[in-house]
Structure formats: structure tokens, C-alpha cells
Design a protein around this nucleic acid. Structure first.
Length: 697
DNA sequence: AGCACGCCGACT
DNA sequence: GTCGGCGTGCTC
């Protein structure tokens, strides 16, 4: 019997070694999928490279491997290296990451089930290699220039690098991705293309499928059925698929012939996993490209400040697509100074849209064009309040307000999901006049219909208002149906959240308005301006995608802070100016990307327990720090996050801040193994996790 | 994390 | 008298 090291799905803090040892009758190469006994159950595992430093132990105590899934080719060294790196960098167990990123169906499957799946795949007809390549659009000079730099590396003829492709919406980034993928594919390699959201896969999939009829393209995201996800993953792993298009989980897809990684909308926060192993798929894509010596292409109209700084410093190659192709210009941005709008009569609420904006909307309706109203708040009203006694619709389980949803007359907590019927009268004083405070998309939709009820469309009939947000698209297929209605011109005014600002081409939209974007200007979240700029820029990009209408396209912004520098940069469509002012602020404040952060988060029913645990963790971290590093590493004290209580648990967090990534990693490597044992000393602690490079602090 | 074992309240 | 609540402890 031979000893093998196996990675199994156990959390870091379970007090177990990173990999467990088992006995096998035959030698098993690393990367082999097995099933092993663990306690009372049998779990999937991956044979892992043996740690030469592991202390020897008595073979008689080891259990034998239960099953070897021979039919699956072992996961290769590059894949294992990516998993090892992720585990180390994000402070998780190797087994947790390795198993969590396999298709769930593969973890469940036994030998014979896997054999059947593989046999089925082998029977599939190969793609039609004779399929004619469709005609490709002519390249703009900008695209040509960018591709001159990119193509040699994509063909494998030049050393690989990480490139940041900065180009506004409509500047033709997708065509650049297509040409790069073509070069990689022609060189016999596979291409991996990441997108931030499932919603964006169908349209990009359609474009790639249309361009590469002779190639095999698979998608990889959590919206697939378990069987589809396994099938697609297997096709990638076996080298049958040439193109893999997916969300963040696809960054871990094994690709034996990887030749190119594309990260579209690289600034998007969705690339950061928000539970379990909190990895950044964008950062791992860069690591993977470097480790596998293939080019990485990060694309965005509003790059993250992290990537922008790397591009400025020369670590990434900066490539720019300065213009929209076709005659399409960027929409003119108009700021609507809300402080100058007439005050409503005493006791009355101000209308949601200022008169000039309403006028511009009427014009669009009369011309048969569409308006997009962006309001990043779903529901009817964020809070319900009693005018008599001051009662507000708080959540009994969270430190947050419950949102009034008119459609089902409910009060819903967006943090814990707790919902019940809206009361008819104030629960505290019985007053019947409880009223909505503030406005969400549901209410805006209703108010817009009222405000425009008096105009007649050219085709006859009343103005048609529609709403797209997480509530209106809950049912499967309803987003597609609603988008189709917009495209077909069956809608005059579209009200929507963030969801509508991402990626969709609305050819008939010539007016985009941000109804109430100011909130993000004054939060304590240092990334809020960066996100707001990206969102507004993206929203602006929804207007005038049709070159014909581009000259008439406008973006309006209702603001009580028209002097804010963010809006000035937006008006000028000047990302570089915005980025350099933000970077200057970040540098002064010692914030990322000039420093590197890690956050220890935890929650407990009793806030004192959470705080005591974090204080102990803080003291442990400080004890590890040599005094000469005092200005390179800062260990902060515990604080309550913005929403301190969620679903009955009190949340607390503490921050580590380091001058360099290496310093932070150095501290984390010693500190985080102490946290598991430390937890045992704090009874009542429900959950805890280290978040490396957190997005929200 | 699972899944055991283990000691105290409302059901057939 | 059992079924089952979730509190501690272990898994190569």
C-alpha cells in the first residue's frame, strides 16, 4: 500500500492538516479525483502533491482510498498551482477551494456515473471545421493599433503580458476580444472569457458563436443545470471546448491549452466572491495568465483604480480605444441642479423628476424614442414612517429599515429577507396615516406614468412605462422577455436599477437620466465615488448606441451637488482626470491601491462575544509584529460595520493595513492559523472569516 | 462543515 | 416511556 495526500473539503479552521493522508493500492498521480472515507461519510477528494515537510505518521492509522475515478484525466499542475496560490493568498484550506470550484455534479458522481458522462461526451459530433468564417467588420484605426500590440502575444509569438484595454462603451472592445480569441484559437489554444454577470453571457455568447461557427464554445456559470455545468466543464478540461465564456467561477476552469484570458468590465465588483473563499476572479485571472505564460486582457470603460495604477506604473500595458466607432458620439451630460428647482408647497413632496427633465422626456415620447431612468433602489419606498409618533419600518432582526413593496403590500428586509404584510395603521400609536419616505423604482414607475399621463404617443394611446429590477425579473426568462419588449419599442420610459445599466444595447434610448445618484457621494465607503462614476458612465453608455440617434442622445443627472468634481469629470467623459484625482485622495489617505487591506469579520448573537474575539485576534496580530514594521503594517481595533446586525447576529470587523502586499501576506500567514484555536476560547461566536482585499470596509 | 454522541422537555 | 432539541468534539 502506498501513501497518498488527498485534498478534501474541510474548512481551514477545522484544525486538520491542509491535506489528509490515505493508502492506495496503486500510485495515484496528483490531480486524480478520488472518494475517501472521512469520519462517518465518504467524501470526494483530489490527490494532491505531497508536502515534503509533513510530519511522518504511522501508516496503520491511515484508511484506504475508497474509490479512484480513473476515467477523469487528473487536474494538471497549472490548475493545482492556481488552487494552491488561491488557498494561500485568501487564507483558506486547499481542499476547500479545490473541491468548491469543481462542478457540484462531479463531486457527487461515483465511477460508473462519470464513465457514462464521459462516454456520452465522446459520442458528440465534432464541430463543423469546414464552417465558413463569417465576414468580420472592418477595424477602426484605434482597434488596429491596439491589435498590433495584442495579436503577437495572442498567437504565442511574443512574451505574454497583462493588458488594460480602456475604451468607452461602443468603442469596439468586444471586436478586440474577438480578434484576440481568433488569434489564440488559430494558434491551437483555448480562450477564457470572463464576464461579471450571468445576465451578460447570452449576448456575448451569441457574438462569439456567430464569429466562430467552426469552434466549440461553452459557457460556465451558476445558472446552468448541474448536468450542463458538468458537461461544459468536462469539455473544457478534456480540451474539446475552444472557448469558455463564464462568470467568476470560470476562472478556475481547467484548460489544458489555455492561450488567452479576457476579463470584460474588469472593474465590476461582481468579480469578488462575497462568501466562502473570498477570491477576486479578476486578480486570479491576472495571476493565472502570469503563471501559465499567456496574455491577459482586462477591458473596461472605467477601470478599477487598482488596474489603472498598474497601467500607469507600466506593470500592465495600457491600450486605449479613444472613440466610439461609427459616427456615434458619447451622449452630452447635463447636470440638473436640484437646489434651484421650485420648492413644493408646504407639506407636499417634491416631484421625482424636475420640470426640464420631464420636458426632455416628453420630447422623446413625441419622437418615438425611449428614456431610461436609473434609480438604484428597488421597492416602492425604502422606509415607511408614522407622521404622528415617528415610528419607522425597522427590521426586528437587523439594524436596517424594511422596504415597502407595494405590489404585494409587504415590508421586506433586504438584508435578511424577513417580510410580512404592511400594517394598516401605525403599530405603535394606531395612526392610520403611515406614509412612504423616499422613493424606489416601483414608486418612480407609478409616478412617471402619472406625470406623463396627459401626453399622447404618436401611434396613439398612453405613455408606456416599464420597470426592470431584481423584483420584476425574479421569474426565469422574465428579464429576456422585458428586454425584448424594450427592443421592440413597446416601452417609452424604462425605469431600472443597476441591472439595466450593464451591457444591454438599447438602440432606441436617446435619453438616460440618473434620478438620485447623490447618496454615493457622502458615504463612508471610500470606493463609493469610484463605483458611482463607473455606474453613471455605464448608464450614459446606454444612450445613443444607434449611430443615427447618437447626436440627439443625452444623459441627465439630477443632483443637489452640481459642483462635485465627479460630475465635472463625467460631463467631460474624462476618466483619466477622475482617476487621477481619486488616486491622489487615496494616496493621501493611505488607502488602496496604495495600501493593502485584509479584514477579519465575525458575527455572534451577543455583540460582546464578537468584540472580545476580535480584540483577542487584534492582540495576537500586534504580538506578531516586529516594532520596526510599525509604519508598514497597521492593526486596527474592532469596529461595527455599516449594517451592524443582520438576521439577529451582531457583526463586527477589524482591519489590517499594509504598505505592501508581501507584508500583508507575511502577517496573514502567521496570524490566520491562530484564529481557529482562538475561536474555541470564545463561546457563542457564530461565524468568522478573513477577507483579503475586501471591497467593502 | 457534517455527523456523531449526549443529556433534558412534549408527544404516541 | 420515546422523539428530538442543539451543545461539544472528531474527522487521515
Amino acid at each position: 500500500m502506498i501513501r497518498v495526500s488527498v485534498a478534501v473539503e474541510t474548512p481551514q479552521y477545522a484544525g486538520l492538516a491542509p491535506c489528509l493522508d490515505y493508502l492506495s493500492e496503486q500510485p495515484l498521480s496528483p490531480g486524480t479525483l478520488v472518494r475517501v472515507p472521512l469520519g462517518q461519510r465518504e467524501v470526494p477528494g483530489l490527490v494532491w502533491d505531497a508536502d515534503p515537510e509533513a510530519p511522518p505518521c504511522d501508516d496503520h492509522l491511515l484508511k484506504p482510498v475508497a474509490q479512484v475515478l480513473q476515467a477523469l484525466p487528473p487536474l494538471g499542475p497549472a490548475w493545482r498551482q492556481l488552487v494552491d496560490f488561491s488557498a494561500r493568498y485568501y487564507q483558506r484550506a486547499v481542499g476547500e477551494i479545490a473541491l468548491a470550484v469543481l462542478p457540484p455534479e462531479l463531486r457527487r458522481l461515483e465511477s460508473d456515473g462519470l464513465d457514462r458522462r464521459l462516454a456520452k461526451l465522446a459520442r458528440r459530433a465534432p464541430p463543423d471545421a469546414q464552417a465558413p468564417t463569417p465576414e468580420r467588420p472592418a477595424l477602426s484605426p484605434g482597434q488596429q493599433a491596439v491589435l498590433t500590440t495584442l495579436l503577437p502575444a495572442c498567437r504565442g509569438e511574443a512574451p505574454p503580458a497583462t493588458h488594460l484595454l480602456h475604451g468607452v462603451t461602443g468603442s469596439g472592445k468586444t471586436e478586440v476580444y474577438l480578434r484576440c480569441a481568433e488569434a489564440a484559437l488559430d494558434a491551437g489554444r483555448q480562450a477564457l472569457v470572463l464576464v461579471p454577470e450571468i445576465n451578460l453571457t447570452p449576448q456575448l455568447e451569441a457574438r462569439f458563436a456567430q464569429r466562430f461557427p467552426g469552434r466549440r464554445l461553452v459557457t460556465l456559470h451558476s445558472g446552468l443545470t448541474p448536468a450542463q455545468r458538468l458537461q461544459h466543464w468536462l469539455m473544457a478540461h478534456l480540451g474539446q471546448a475552444d472557448l469558455v465564456l463564464g462568470t467568476r467561477l470560470a476562472v478556475f476552469c481547467p484548460l489544458p491549452r489555455l492561450g488567452l484570458v479576457v476579463v470584460d468590465e474588469e472593474h465590476d465588483p461582481s468579480y469578488k466572491q462575497q462568501d466562502g473563499a473570498r477570491y477576486s476572479a479578476r486578480d486570479l485571472a491576472v495571476y493565472r495568465g502570469h503563471a501559465e505564460r499567456v496574455p491577459v486582457l482586462l477591458g473596461s470603460a472605467t477601470p478599477s483604480l487598482e488596474s489603472w495604477l498598474h497601467a500607469q506604473s507600466g506593470r500592465y500595458t495600457l491600450l486605449s480605444l479613444p472613440e466610439r466607432i461609427g459616427q456615434g458620439e458619447l451622449p452630452r451630460v447635463t447636470l440638473l441642479d436640484m437646489t434651484q428647482q421650485p420648492k413644493p408647497p408646504a407639506g407636499r413632496e417634491a416631484p421625482p423628476l424636475a420640470a426640464p427633465l420631464l420636458q426632455a422626456m416628453r420630447q422623446r415620447v413625441e419622437r418615438g424614442e425611449q428614456t431610461l431612468l436609473f434609480l438604484n433602489r428597488r421597492g416602492f419606498a425604502p422606509v415607511l414612517g408614522c407622521s404622528a409618533c415617528g415610528w419607522k419600518s425597522g427590521c426586528p432582526h437587523c439594524s436596517a429599515w424594511r422596504v415597502f413593496h407595494k405590489r404585494d403590500r409587504s415590508l421586506r428586509c433586504h438584508h435578511c429577507g424577513f417580510a410580512d404584510r404592511v400594517p394598516r395603521a401605525c403599530p405603535d400609536c394606531g395612526n392610520l396615516d403611515i406614509e412612504p419616505i423616499g422613493r424606489g423604482t416601483e414608486r418612480l414607475e407609478e409616478q412617471v406614468a402619472e406625470l406623463l399621463h396627459d401626453i399622447e404617443r404618436p401611434g396613439g394611446g398612453a405613455v408606456r412605462v416599464a420597470r426592470i429590477d431584481a423584483d420584476s425579473t425574479r421569474l426565469k426568462g422574465s428579464l429576456e422577455a422585458q428586454l425584448a419588449a424594450v427592443h421592440a419599442g413597446e416601452v417609452d420610459v424604462l425605469v431600472g436599477t443597476q441591472m439595466v445599466t450593464k451591457g444591454h444595447d438599447f438602440r432606441r434610448v436617446t435619453l438616460v437620466a440618473a434620478v438620485n445618484p447623490d447618496g454615493a457621494l457622502f458615504t463612508s465607503d471610500f470606493r463609493a465615488p469610484e463605483r458611482l462614476f463607473a455606474t453613471l458612465m455605464q448608464a450614459a453608455g446606454r444612450a445613443g448606441r444607434d449611430a443615427e440617434a447618437a447626436s440627439r442622445s443625452e444623459m441627465w443627472i439630477q443632483t443637489w451637488n452640481p459642483g462635485h468634481a465627479l460630475f465635472a469629470a463625467l460631463r467631460a467623459h474624462d476618466f483619466a482626470a477622475f482617476a487621477s484625482s481619486q488616486l491622489a485622495e487615496r494616496e493621501m489617505a493611505g488607502l488602496p491601491p496604495y495600501s493593502h487591506l485584509a479584514l477579519l469579520r465575525c458575527e455572534a448573537r451577543d455583540p460582546a462575544v464578537a468584540e472580545a474575539f476580535l480584540r483577542a485576534a487584534r492582540d495576537a496580530a500586534r504580538a506578531l509584529m516586529p516594532p520596526e514594521l510599525a509604519d508598514e503594517l497597521v492593526v486596527y481595533s474592532p469596529v461595527a460595520p455599516h449594517v451592524a446586525k443582520v438576521a439577529g447576529f451582531e457583526r463586527r470587523q477589524m482591519l489590517l493595513e499594509a504598505r505592501s502586499r508581501a507584508r500583508l501576506q507575511w502577517l496573514l500567514a502567521q496570524w490566520s492559523p491562530q484564529l481557529g484555536p482562538l475561536r474555541a476560547a470564545h463561546k457563542g461566536l457564530a461565524r468568522w472569516a478573513v477577507d483579503v482585499d475586501p471591497l467593502d470596509i
